[in-house]
Amino acid sequence: MSKFDYPRLPRREIIGVLAESQIASVSDADLLNPSPDFTSNLYTQILIHIGCLQEDYGLVEFADLEQLENPDLHVDSVRMMNLFKKIKEVISALDCPKKFTLKDLIKPEADRTELFLSAVLNFCLHKDTRMNLLRPAVEDLTLLDEQRQELEARILQLNTDISEFNESREREMPLIQEVDTKIKELRQSISALNNHQMSLKSTFRKKKDAAKEMDEKISSAEFALVQSAQENASLRSKIVQSPDKLQRALEEKKAVQVEAKDAERVAMQSFHKKTAILEVYTKELSSLLEAGTVHVKGMASKKMTKHLKQMQTLQEQMNSGKQVEKDVKVLKVKNSDDGVLDKSLEVKLHEQQGRGGSSSLSLS
């Protein structure tokens, strides 16, 4: 505790300080002739003012009074002893040069009372001065304390919210784990879809290259179709335009062939007949030659000449029949070749028409 000087305050100043501090209202007479009740009440008000004594200090525990004989007689004495103890502690703490005794309460003296009042009031003045200086800091401290309390309440509320959030998080942890699992599955699905997308892009590039190659093939097919059309036109120009005329010519040649065969057969019959006659005449001529007659020789010579002419005629007819037969065979071969050529041309025409249809379908 700080030490103070103890200038004896004048009675007027003591009265003024007590009045200004609203401790008590006293007069010069009260200070000149202090009574026990006056000093007890004044000290009580001063101690209450400086915060060293509670207003209910006079209340005594009944359990303590029951330990005494005639407790009703000791109530005031117990109250006075409590007051004395508090005043003595305060005076001792203020390092007053004189010690406060019980006599100062029971039989107070004006001089000692003014000294003790001066000491306590000096402390009150010093306290008020310091409190006025410290009041802004105290107010700030009070404000800070209120803010601290508010912050503590806020912290308590936040801790409560955090606890609730932790409990909620623990309750929702299975859902979070399930969501994490779904997220992992979705990421795997996204990765698979990305790979599938890359595969589709690669397939698209291949299809694009195949389409380009197909366009080239279509161009080649169109060019081949044009060439086939030209070849078809050329083949069509080689096809017989009038099959009826060809058929009539074949029939005429067949008729000629039949006639030639008939003529050949007649000629062969005549040839065989003439040959038989020639053999007869030859035999006769031989017999006549053997006979040696000139007349017979002349006659045989004429007959031989005539017979030879007939044989030459028959030979010419036979040669003519053979030539006709050869012509018929040539016509048959030509007719067969024309039929084969006609069929091959028809087959090629159908093939070219089929190619043209497939190419047009591909182009469409």
Rank of each mutant, 00 (worst) to 15 (best):
V280L: 12
V266Y: 12
V280R: 07
K261W: 03
K182T: 10
K283C: 05
T203C: 01
K217E: 11
E164C: 01
A249T: 03
V280I: 09
R236L: 09
K207Y: 01
A263P: 00
N194I: 08
A210T: 12
K273P: 02
S199K: 09
V296L: 13
K206E: 12
V294T: 11
A255P: 00
S286F: 05
Y281H: 09
L289P: 01
K283W: 04
A233I: 02
E213T: 07
L186Q: 14
K253I: 03
Q247C: 05
D180I: 13
T293W: 08
F204S: 06
F165E: 02
Q257L: 11
I190Y: 15
A224C: 07
K283E: 13
S242Y: 11
K206C: 02
K245M: 09
K274T: 09
L225T: 01
T203H: 04
P243N: 00
R187G: 11
H272S: 15
L285E: 02
V179G: 03
V294K: 06
E178H: 12
D215M: 08
L250C: 03
G298C: 05
A211M: 07
A263R: 02
A210P: 00
D215A: 10
D215Y: 04
S286G: 07
K273L: 08
N194S: 13
G298L: 11
A229S: 08
V296N: 13
S199N: 10
R171G: 02
V296H: 12
A221T: 01
Q177H: 13
L285V: 10
H196K: 08
A249K: 07
M198L: 14
V296M: 13
A211K: 03
E231P: 01
N195E: 15
